[in-house]
Amino acid sequence: MSTANLLRLFLLAAIWGGSFLFMRIAAPVLGAAVLIEYRVLFASLFLAAVGVFLRKKLDLKQHWKHFLILGLFNSALPFLMFGFAARTLSASLLAVLNATTPLWGTLIAAVWSRTMVSGKVLLGLALGTCGVALLVGFDHVSSKPGAGLAIAAVLFASFNYGIASNYAKQAKAVEPFANAHGSMWASTLLVLPVLPFFPAPGDPTVGIMGAVIALGVLCSGIAYMIYFRLIQDVGPSSALTVTFLSPLFGILWGVLFLGETVGWYTFAGAAIVLTGTALVTGFRPGWGFLRKATA
């Protein structure tokens, strides 16, 4: 992996780790529906501007169903669940629970293809479950009213990401930028009907709107562009490394900017979840890509 792609990898992990920080800041004021509608709308407008600059057109007539399915499971539903959970849970806990996504993806793939999973994968799934249980059992946030429902919402969000990843493997190949751009507009339309039922509980300040814009433009629009560039340059397996890095940044940003308290159980739970994820995905953390970073 080149130095440039290594920097992109860490930048993407830092950005996606920051998404939990921005949601934690804005969700209590805006609520899940309004926050996420802003997020996907700002991301759509940003990607539309980039598309005009790069002269990339969306073939909506041919791919509109694909964009709707991808937008529903990869953005609208999981974003709403995270927005709901961010009103109660810490950014650190959100980030670590999100790392269960590959576990769900593997489990869904096994059911989808009706194949038995290996012993290593079963061990990984068991470790992931134990890691989540450790986090939930010891984290003081879990004792807050509504925390149980919020944790279930995050796990359901990760489950939807697993559906989206398996759908993408089966779907007809679409250009990566078009996937990001089209799915964001689809998410904007899908979240819109929810708004009348879940109005914002408060009035946003300049700081809140700044967090929302960062969430849409930086954590969705720019992050997708970096992610798809990594897939193109180094392949999906190496790009998967971001799954192991973003929870660390999520914890770091929560401590630095929100004053969140983390204990031994946070790091132990995160380590167990990520170890389970590595077993499930077959990820091997060899350092060869680092030695080639100057290539």
Rank of each mutant, 00 (worst) to 15 (best):
F73R: 01
F22H: 03
A43W: 03
H66E: 13
L21S: 03
I15P: 05
V29R: 02
A49M: 12
N5D: 14
G71W: 02
T115L: 08
A4T: 12
A26D: 00
V29F: 01
F79G: 04
R8Y: 15
V96F: 13
S92K: 01
E37T: 03
F42S: 07
L93V: 10
L6Q: 11
F67Q: 05
K65Y: 11
A110I: 08
K57Y: 10
A109K: 10
A76M: 06
G17R: 04
F67P: 03
R87L: 06
H63S: 10
T115M: 08
A13Q: 11
N98A: 15
A86Y: 01
L122M: 13
K120H: 10
G71P: 06
E37W: 12
A13H: 09
H63D: 14
R87G: 14
P102H: 05
M116N: 12
L9A: 08
S90M: 06
V96I: 15
V50T: 03
R24P: 02
T100M: 14
S2P: 15
A110G: 12
L93T: 09
W64F: 14
A13C: 11
L11D: 06
L6A: 15
V121Q: 15
L30E: 01
E37Q: 13
L89F: 01
Y38G: 13
G71F: 02
L72P: 04
L93G: 04
W104R: 08
L41V: 13
L72M: 12
L77Q: 01
M23K: 00
L60V: 15
L6C: 12
N98F: 05
L12V: 09
T101G: 07
S118L: 06
A110M: 09
I69G: 04
G124Y: 04
M116K: 13
L12R: 05
V111I: 15
W104A: 07
L122S: 10
N74T: 03
P28A: 04
Q62T: 15
L12D: 09
T115G: 06
A48P: 01
K65G: 13
M23P: 01
A33P: 05
A110D: 06
L72C: 09
F10H: 15
L11T: 15
A26V: 02
L11S: 15
L103Q: 08
F42T: 08
T100W: 06
A14Y: 07
Q62I: 11
F10G: 10
V121D: 07
M1T: 12
R55F: 02
A33H: 06
F42L: 14
T106F: 14
F42Y: 08
F22K: 00
A85H: 06
G124M: 09
T101M: 14
P28K: 00
A4F: 12
A4Q: 13
G17I: 11
L89P: 00
R39I: 00
R8L: 13
G105H: 06
F79Q: 00
L9Q: 10
A110N: 10
L70Q: 12
V96L: 11
S118I: 07
W16T: 00
A43G: 10
F73H: 03
V40E: 02
A49P: 02
G119F: 10
D59Y: 14
P78C: 05
S44I: 02
T115C: 02
N5K: 12
W112K: 09
A14H: 04
A76C: 08
S113K: 14
S75D: 10
K56D: 08
A85W: 08
R8C: 09
M116V: 10
G119V: 03
M1D: 03
L60I: 15
F79K: 02
